[in-house]
Design a protein around this nucleic acid. Sequence first.
DNA 1: GCGTGATAGTTGTAAAAGTCCATCAATTTT
DNA 2: AAAATTGATGGACTTTTACAACTATCACGC
Lengths: 157, 157
Amino acid sequence: MKAVPTHGIDLDVLENTLSFYIRVMDSQVSRNLDQRLDRLEVARGKGKITALFLIDGNPGIRPSVLAELILKDRSATGRILDSFEAHGLIERRDSAKDNRALECFITPKGAALAAKVRAIVVDQSTAFFDRIIPRDEQTVLMGILKRAYHRLREVEA
Amino acid sequence: MKAVPTHGIDLDVLENTLSFYIRVMDSQVSRNLDQRLDRLEVARGKGKITALFLIDGNPGIRPSVLAELILKDRSATGRILDSFEAHGLIERRDSAKDNRALECFITPKGAALAAKVRAIVVDQSTAFFDRIIPRDEQTVLMGILKRAYHRLREVEA
DNA sequence: GCGTGATAGTTGTAAAAGTCCATCAATTTT
DNA sequence: AAAATTGATGGACTTTTACAACTATCACGC
């Protein structure tokens, strides 16, 4: 990528639009993360990593609950689970309580992947933001976004 | 969407990972924005709005410069310009100085769309974040992200 | 118990984005 | 003048994502 100074370029109203910065940050951090996760079954897309962790940390979690937590519809979630299962990362078993429902369980292979991804994700986020945001500001940022995240869930409900 | 409380759900390391919150915020704000922009030629995808504004505000800007600014490769940028041109929003003319290059110019129709989109984008961002982040925190957030954005460009270069 | 409506999950489809690579023309460098 | 670089386009491919249709099951009220 070439050096194109941002000073002097007129970004119009985007200059003062929060959503613009969120969107740019996302695309860059996501691209960077995908490179780190290359070949790891969870690269690309926003929900795969969260889904893997949730299944790892909440044995028996159901696809529909998962869908709401990763903010996707059931069909998209189902396809993620299909690919997880095809790669031997999880198992879907019929629920004893509700014959419509399934329950997701991590496999040893899935747990191993989760451990690996855990390390990568944390490391990547730290490395990425350390280059562009001072540590004290990162703390502030995290606080604001964390509260916003929880409020988002309340509001959406 | 149903009420699924986030309290009590274990998000694993994501709980303290900045990239996670950035990614979630992005997906929500982008989805919300797309709904607002429905049918407007610039919905979906991250670069279209920025590209339109840049062409509007910088007459004669070249596709390759545009590509670097919207953080896409030339091929993807070209396709955005194709669709803009097909919809009569811009014109690409041969550059007088460099016969390889093109120069992009907004059309009246494109300028009208830019004006409309400008209003929507600002309004949407404000409305979206007002629901989940107090105004004073929004100011702080904007400052941090703005600095991060410019540093990102310096670092990437 | 039975019907209505909601819920769980799958499948199909369609649209679109992003990336990679090859190609071609024009320009700059040495 | 040859080589390397840059600007732009085109094709192919992978993935994501949303939307709607469909089956099966459950829950509630009467």
